[in-house]
């Protein structure tokens, strides 16, 4: 049998280092290295209403219904892969703008990879993130000795 002719265009196999999901995954990888794999960053992607809601909230034109929502989770392998969702961001078919909702339920847009990088730096070095990491690292260390629920 003769192979069918390939009609596909040249496809760039190298991922765009500035795309939101790549930027998030890089930080996820660094977390595992930095904590000796006691904590593990994980980026999970879904599609749906979060993206739609974000556009409506920000009064932005919604040129397509499709959107991607990336949740940045911190997993603790020692706690049976318990995971904590640190933040969630969203974007459309185009990688930017990236949209997120702050702790006060206000929506914000990040126009490009530089803005996302700055926001990531701010978020990952925030006091809230430090508290989360400390709690999870403590539990990762304690996991073999005790149960996460206890009587006081």
């Amino acid at each position: 049998m003769v192979d069918a002719e390939d009609f596909w265009p040249e496809i760039e196999s190298i991922e765009d280092p500035g795309s939101p999901v790549v930027l998030l995954r890089k930080q996820a990888e660094k977390l595992a290295l930095k904590t000796g794999h006691r904590l593990r960053g994980q980026v999970s992607t879904s599609s749906g209403a979060f993206h739609f809601a974000a556009h409506v909230e920000l009064g932005m034109p919604l040129d397509e219904e499709m959107g991607f929502t990336h949740s940045f989770r911190i997993e603790v392998p020692a706690l049976d892969d318990y995971s904590y969702t640190l933040f969630t961001v969203s974007h459309g078919i185009e990688s930017y703008p990236v949209i997120y909702q702050d702790d006060n339920q206000q929506w914000h847009a990040l126009a490009n990879s530089e803005a996302l990088t700055d926001w990531l730096r701010e978020t990952l070095t925030s006091e809230k993130t430090k508290r989360v990491l400390k709690t999870l690292l403590d539990q990762a260390g304690d996991a073999s000795r005790s149960n996460p629920f206890d009587r006081r």
């Binding site: 706690l79 049976d80 318990y82 539990q139 996460p148 629920f149 206890d150 009587r151 006081r152």
Partner: peptide, 26 residues
């Protein structure tokens, strides 16, 4: 009993059965 640690501050859980039977996953 309750959880000795928690990140979710919006929910508090108190159980009357052994702590090992209620394991947080997400």
């Amino acid at each position: 009993r309750t959880r000795p640690w928690s990140i979710c501050t919006k929910i508090a859980v108190f159980t009357r059965f052994h702590s090992a039977f209620l394991q947080p996953t997400e």
